[in-house]
Design a binder for these strands. Sequence first.
DNA 1: TTGACATGATACCTTTTGGTATCTATTAAA
DNA 2: TTTAATAGATACCAAAAGGTATCATGTCAA
Lengths: 110, 110
Amino acid sequence: MTAAQADAAQNTFRALADPTRRDILRLLGNRDMTIAEVSDSFDMTRAAVKKHLTVLSDGGLITVRTEGRTRINALDPQGFAPVLGWLEYFDDFWDDRLLALKSALERNQP
Amino acid sequence: MTAAQADAAQNTFRALADPTRRDILRLLGNRDMTIAEVSDSFDMTRAAVKKHLTVLSDGGLITVRTEGRTRINALDPQGFAPVLGWLEYFDDFWDDRLLALKSALERNQP
DNA sequence: TTGACATGATACCTTTTGGTATCTATTAAA
DNA sequence: TTTAATAGATACCAAAAGGTATCATGTCAA
């Protein structure tokens, strides 16, 4: 792994470490949103949400496009690649029992 | 997702957010190790490594067993389940192009 | 052009995090 | 039974993280 790739992975892992940011990603999985729209879902100031969006952008997990005076935040699924790549190192350890557990967890999620 | 599951996921994501801890997991993927053995691979005190191991244990990513006066740290692959489960929420977004990218990343990793 | 709206930027505060230094407890061996 | 090795616990420190408040900037509309 190159140094740049390692940094990218670090930014991505860091972005995923905060529960608010993970919730934001789920929101953006439903539809693109402005900062104001994202902020409506959280009990914090827009400035705080903006900081989270910046971290998510640094992690490559979202992209932002400007439309007039609004800025639209969109999920970027490719941003997950560094994490998936890192996790694959452990593929040998994931047996059928673990995959079953993973599926069970998935079914319990909203 | 229950509150307990959410907490477990948080502890796991937090454990993965630090590059030293991700390196420790890779080390333990090769073989089980004592704290002293893990410490040999890093330029920091055993106390610092011990803290990282505690965070990894809180995240469910390693288990510890006592043998005489040594404590053996071992990778626990089941600890990845909350992360894999969370990531699966985005499965719909992972198209062939992304999977190809993921494979490319994997090939470049040591 | 004025005014309202959507956002960005900065300063500041508190808590958490990653680290060291130091002390204590337990276990194996001479 | 000393003595050395392995590890846990605690206090402490600097830096980073998450948050608020405030001000500046750009854009649309009357």
